[in-house]
Design a protein around this nucleic acid. Structure first.
Lengths: 143, 143
DNA sequence: CTTATTATATAGTGATTTACTAGGTTTTTA
DNA sequence: TAAAAACCTAGTAAATCACTATATAATAAG
């Protein structure tokens, strides 16, 4: 399940995409518009910065802006970064120790297939797609 | 993320599918073969019973067997039952209160699309498919 | 140079969930 | 009658979640 961390990160990126100008956008504004605790966003946003998704400026009239155009970010990019991967089961998490049953496990290929399905879907949608409500580049993706 | 509950339930069902005969299979045997705590399985299996997936018999030489053939169960059926739904975000969980931002939320259609994608994938694979390693009815599903 | 404003860093915290274990009761068959 | 099995309920240590709190560092305007 995708937690508030990833969901808020996505909304934050969308907010920046929609309020993109030459100015930097302070987190305070985003927090107010999105009705999310600024303090919590402060904790999430460094992950996006370190991933190179954002330009930042400190101090007066500082804030954040997108480093690239909204069509250059897929939802998958943002969620993998903020959620720390999108493995649907612990078995596929890199941090977890390798399961000794992996070789004989009948379900492991299923989980790999699920993981691929999830990643493919989330990589098929960009921030720009979300702004252009419910439409992806290949027409209509949402069912 | 799918927890041990759902994963163990699936392995339990697969074990029953592979050791299906006229006899009932005691949980002890499944626990030993699958190397899962029997006490923990005892807690999971009532969910499968109540869903009508299993025939059970108490007492000496009692145990469990599948109520239907292995090709009649999809992985989605089993996981939705044991995990209590497969919503990828809290916003889509029936138990959660309705989000006041739903109408204007740019991301909600995305999550619905993801949920559909996940359900479609998991419903395309049956227990029998898993036993016939990595092949589904329509050829090769796993990537 | 000062002040306000912003980002950044680190630590703490209550509530919930997870993955079990423990101990008992009931049913069934040999 | 005894053993073997399902079934039921409660407890629990560890982890995770969704934040809050406090402090520091950088920047631009005046």
């Amino acid at each position: 399940m995708i937690s508030t961390r990833g969901r808020y990160a996505l909304r934050l990126m969308l907010d920046l995409a929609q309020h993109s100008s030459d100015d930097f956008v302070p987190l305070k504004d985003i927090a107010e518009r999105q009705e999310i605790s600024k303090k919590y966003l402060e904790q999430i946003i460094p992950t996006l910065s370190r991933a190179g998704f954002l330009q930042t400026n400190r101090g007066f009239q500082g804030g954040y802006k997108l480093a690239k155009n909204p069509d250059k970010y897929t939802v998958g990019d943002i969620l993998r970064e903020t959620e720390g991967g999108l493995a649907p089961v612990a078995c596929l998490n890199n941090e977890t120790i390798q399961c000794p049953r992996a070789a004989e496990c009948l379900t492991l290929p299923l989980w790999k297939g699920l993981q691929d399905t999830i990643n493919n879907y989330l990589d098929s949608v960009t921030l720009q797609d979300l702004i252009d409500k419910g439409k992806t580049s290949n027409g209509d993706y949402y069912i």
